[in-house]
Write a protein that binds this DNA or RNA. Structure first.
Lengths: 251, 251
DNA sequence: AAGTCGGGTTGACACAGATCAAAGGGGTGC
DNA sequence: GCACCCCTTTGATCTGTGTCAACCCGACTT
């Protein structure tokens, strides 16, 4: 946790030197599967870590695209908003996940990324990443996998928004969080939500009242316990059955 | 259209030699921006074109992933279906668009791709594409752009599914088709839908009856004329206002 | 310690879209 | 060229979620 201390600049909000080779997220993050020597080359490329306070924007729609970002610590949301005032949360990102891939296509970011708690990211200058990845096939391939995974995830959200009812959406959301926390060594059944009911609702295509009611109903049925943003899943298998009604819906 | 005739094998369903350098879609498709010499290298890599009849699968969820496909002619849909019988159309693809990027992440396709009319695709073996793109920076970069564009497109669909009402969704859908047909040199205002009302509904998160009613209402209001699958947009600006209510919805 | 404010919960009611049902039409395959 | 079947349209009714409103709670502020 205190690697590279000599490079740390103690001004809040900036320039903590990052090093993939020292990072305990490397098995989740972009350098996954790299050899020692290649990891060292990543290190030289990765821009200084950047710290953000809760509520701060990592980037905004319209900003020039220059880098991807890896979440080192904390929690983010991304959202798109249109001229006519619609607002859609497109994802929540936690440690080891990559932000900014929306910007590659037009060299301008198309969504906003906001820290939902005090957070830290590593900056990955994209031009350099491309250069390095053409020299390191496994890095190139992994980058493609990360982008593809994002596409697959988006398809999952489309499925959720297109076919599920409110309680199914919320159950899917909670189970997804649970699984991602598990992968990071946290409890699968107990966690703090970093986002508001409204943000959950936006992500799930529901109004905040509907989200709140669904939480209450899950609690009444003994599936979870809710205290504000603190969630405890009491019965994971049963929560899964919310997603898969007993007789299916094959037709 | 009749390039490479000498290589055509007249058995339906297979092996029409493809050549990017001869293809009139090259400015829309993956080799966009390549130099002559690099284009020639693409040619050697591109697998024989493959023809599909209407209704035929290009690939299925669960198939091993080996190639991307470029739509050379025709029209496809992609859809995901879950064990419990949910079915979500995730996209419709036309000439010059790339299919199969969902498969990169786990080396297995996660959705089905089906031809909605007799179609033809070029096969792009992915391992070879990665190898070539590490030698041709502009190819690598363009591949990234194509993947990023898919992510941005997916965000647009999430916005549509999460925030729009039925008529807004259909208007957005028609305008999107119109724009893509225009980019391919077809009429912006008159086209045949290749998909059923049910497939449109699945894509838009609506039931087929709702889609049908929305079509009828647009027709009653003089925005479009509908005769089965033949659509004529009579008033594009007015159709756009369906998407952007006069006073917006800022609040 | 009281006041304020944003976020959350809950209730009553409205409405968009789903569901169920029936009939017509056109394209496809034989 | 004919027949069949799927697609589409339209109507009547139902329902899940949105909308509007009131109230509560906990966290900051002063």
């Amino acid at each position: 946790m205190h690697a590279n201390v000599k490079n740390v600049i103690p001004i809040s909000g900036h320039s903590l030197k990052a090093a993939c080779s020292q990072c305990n997220l490397r098995e989740l993050c972009l350098p996954f599967g790299l050899e020692e020597s290649d990891m060292a080359r990543m290190d030289t490329m990765i821009g200084g870590g950047r710290k953000l306070k809760r509520g701060q924007h990592l980037y905004r729609a319209g900003d020039a695209f220059e880098s991807l970002f890896a979440v080192k610590a904390g929690f983010f949301k991304t959202d798109v908003l249109t001229e006519d005032g619609r607002d859609q949360v497109t994802g929540f990102q936690m440690a080891g996940e990559i932000l900014g891939m929306d910007g590659i296509s037009v060299e301008v970011h198309t969504c906003n990324a906001v820290a939902l708690e005090d957070s830290e990211v590593c900056m990955i200058p994209f031009t350099q990443l491309e250069a390095l990845s053409s020299e390191i096939p496994s890095l190139q391939h992994h980058l493609h996998k990360v982008m593809s995974r994002e596409i697959v995830r988006d398809h999952g959200v489309m499925m959720l928004l297109g076919t599920m009812r409110a309680e199914e959406r919320l159950a899917a959301f909670l189970l997804n969080l649970s699984q991602r926390f598990t992968a990071r060594g946290y409890s699968p059944s107990e966690f703090h939500l970093r986002m508001t009911r409204e943000e959950i609702g936006s992500y799930l295509g529901l109004k905040l009242e509907t989200v709140s009611r669904a939480f209450s109903r899950f609690q009444d049925e003994g599936l979870i316990s809710v205290q504000q943003k603190h969630i405890r899943i009491l019965d994971i298998p049963k929560l899964k059955t919310v997603l898969t009604p007993p007789d299916g819906r094959i037709g």
